Computed example of a mutant assay.
Amino acid sequence: MEKPGLWYTGEMEEERPRSQTVTTTTSSYCETFTTSTSLSYDKSFLTTAPGLLLLAEIVFGLLVWALIAGSEYFLFAAFGWVMFVAVFYWVLTVFLLIIYITRAYTRIPKVPWTLVGLCFNGSAFILYLISAVVDATSVSNEIPQNHNYNTWAASAFFAFVVTTCYAASTYFSFRTWRTRS
């Protein structure tokens, strides 16, 4: 009588454990991928016009949302919109700067990075322009006990500065996209 995992030898009914054979195979499929996982640091990117514009967008964008966040913006829906645009594009710009500095975009060649940059900068320019106009038109000194007037006025100024930076980035992205396509 056979028991699972044991051999039946016939006459003597001697039971012994089965021998386990393991067969391994190797594949050379990974030869198309690079084996290095380290990212390089591109020092020269920060000296180019797009690199300097990214830094300016980060600094001035931070000023926009920090000035509004330090006030009672939640009482006015317009400043909530400006906060959304400022924080959203500030975070994405920081990620984009990290991608460009570490040259991570070279590791993902299937993504059309010039088109991604153009769409990102173009949408940031349009939405920042709208939010800068909303910010500037919402600043009023006529509200009773408005101690946020100077803060909101400064945020409107820096919103227009960031809008100008994104407009310049859109121009450089368009030139790069046009020459590569």
Results as ranks from 00 to 15, higher is better:
Ser138Pro: 10
Tyr128Pro: 02
Ile99Lys: 14
Phe95Ile: 11
Asn141Arg: 10
Glu142Ile: 13
Ala132Gln: 09
Tyr100Gln: 15
Val94Met: 05
Trp90Ala: 08
Ile108Leu: 11
Asn141Cys: 14
Pro144Met: 07
Asn141Gly: 15
Ala124Phe: 00
Gly117Gln: 08
Val134Leu: 13
Cys119Met: 09
Ile126Cys: 13
Leu96Asp: 14
Trp90Met: 02
Arg107Leu: 09
Phe120Lys: 00
Val133Met: 12
Tyr105Cys: 10
Ala136Lys: 04
Leu92Gly: 15
Ala136Asn: 03
Ile143Glu: 09
Asp135Ile: 15
Val91Leu: 06
Ile143Cys: 05
Leu96Pro: 10
Phe120Asp: 10
Ile108Ala: 09
Tyr89Gly: 11
Leu96Ala: 12
Thr93Ser: 08
Ser140Met: 01
Ser138Asn: 09
Leu115Ile: 15
Ser131Val: 06
Ala124Cys: 07
Pro112Trp: 01
Pro112Ala: 06
Tyr100Arg: 14
Tyr89Met: 01
Ile130Leu: 13
Val91Gln: 01
Gly122Lys: 02
Leu118Val: 08
Asn146Glu: 08
Phe95Gly: 06
Ile99Cys: 11
Ser138Phe: 01
Val116Pro: 00
Thr137Ile: 13
Thr93Phe: 02
Val134Gln: 06
Val111Tyr: 04
Leu129Ile: 00
Asn121Thr: 01
Ala104Glu: 07
Val91Thr: 10
Val116Met: 06
Ile130Phe: 13
Thr102Asp: 13
Asn146Trp: 04
Ile130Lys: 05
Pro144Val: 00
Glu142Arg: 14
Val111Met: 05
Asn146Thr: 02
Trp113Gly: 06
Thr102Met: 11
Asn146Phe: 02
Cys119Phe: 10
Leu97Gln: 06
Ile108Pro: 14
Ser131Trp: 04
Arg107His: 06
Thr114Gln: 04
Tyr100Phe: 15
Tyr105Gln: 07
Phe95Leu: 03
Glu142His: 09
Ser138Leu: 12
Ile98Lys: 09
Asn141Tyr: 13
Leu115Pro: 01
Ser123Phe: 11
Cys119Val: 15
Ser138Ile: 05
Asn121Tyr: 00
Ser140Val: 06
Thr114Arg: 12
Asp135Arg: 09
Pro112Lys: 03
Asn121Gly: 01
Leu97Lys: 03
Pro112His: 05
Leu129Phe: 09
Phe120Pro: 02
Lys110Phe: 11
Val91Asp: 00
Ser123Glu: 08
Leu127Cys: 04
Ile108Met: 08
Ala124Tyr: 06
Ile99Gln: 12
Ala104Ser: 11
Thr114Ile: 14
Ile126Lys: 03
Ser138Gln: 11
Pro109Val: 07
Ile99Gly: 03
Val94Leu: 08
Val134Trp: 02
Leu115Gly: 14
Thr106Phe: 14
Thr137Gln: 08
Arg107Asp: 04
Leu92Gln: 11
Val139Trp: 09
Gln145Thr: 14
Ile108Cys: 06
Ile101Trp: 07
Gly122Glu: 00
Thr106Lys: 08
Asn121Phe: 01
Thr106Met: 12
Phe125Ile: 01
Arg103Tyr: 03
Ala132Tyr: 06
Ile143Gly: 03
Val91Lys: 08
Ile108Val: 15
Trp113Pro: 10
Asp135Phe: 10
Ala132Asp: 08
Gln145Lys: 14
Tyr105Val: 08
Leu127Ser: 00
Thr93Pro: 01
Ala136Cys: 05
Thr102Tyr: 15
Phe95Gln: 01
Tyr100Pro: 10
Phe95Arg: 06
Ile126Phe: 10
Val133Asp: 02
Ser123Pro: 04
Val91Trp: 03
Tyr128Ile: 00
